[in-house]
Amino acid sequence: MFDDFFTRALIAGIGIAIVTGPLGCLVIWRRLSYFGDTLSHSALLGVTLAYAFSINISLSVFIISGVVALLLLSLQKRTKLAGDSLLGLLAHSSLAIGLVLIGFLSSIRFDLMGLLFGDILAVTFEDILIIWAGGLIILGILFYIWKSIFAATVNYDLAAAEGMKPDVSNVIFTLLLAGVIAISIKMIGALLITGLLLIPAATARSLSNNPTQMVLLSIVTGISSVVIGLFSSLEFNTASGPSIIVAALGLFILSLISFKRSGALQR
């Protein structure tokens, strides 16, 4: 059944959505959406390096995004530059370095559109293995540090005072974010990954009244977005990444309507 490119894309996409669900909730709760953007922009540099040295794309993206993430964490403590300026600086300079390097590698054929927006045809059996194995590792680690990272998200001081070691889990969480970008870049594309982290979680927010429910709902919404997006991508011959994000947006708008109806906004 893996012979069909569409089946491969579906299996890969569902695997990604399961991982982006819980991570996306944390990104929303911790107001890290721009942070996610920075990591995914730097992922392009990772892809270029992967081609230049012929190593695995996901591995190279993970290394570059991970380094950028750790750099950010340490710079945030050291410079007086505001957080968002720092993020912009790193996002755009690593994107620019990636694009400049692509220019130097003129001997290699590049599908730039595919890198930026994802390519449904590019998903191989090996990619599925990377997505599901990587995804399980990410989820396993996330499950292990969940209590600590969740407490730190609610309140850093409480978590620190009561022995939850928030600094350690912060670093691990950041690396997990780099990991999810690494496994999903081929499918969703560097520019749109943050969308798959944010939009299903935002949809889940208006429908849930406790954290566990929000995590589960954002997984379900993510999977639905992938399935709807991929089928319409096949139908209308559009790029897979944007189609998935548009589907996610559609579900978000639907959730807003039902949210308003239920009167939850009238507090």
């Binding site: 709760w29 309140n155 409480l158 939850m164 009244n209 406790n210 954290p211 929000m214």
Partner: peptide, 14 residues
Amino acid sequence: TMPLRVIDFMKITN
């Protein structure tokens, strides 16, 4: 952005 009931909050570190 975080839906949180009192019962969930009680359990955050314990």
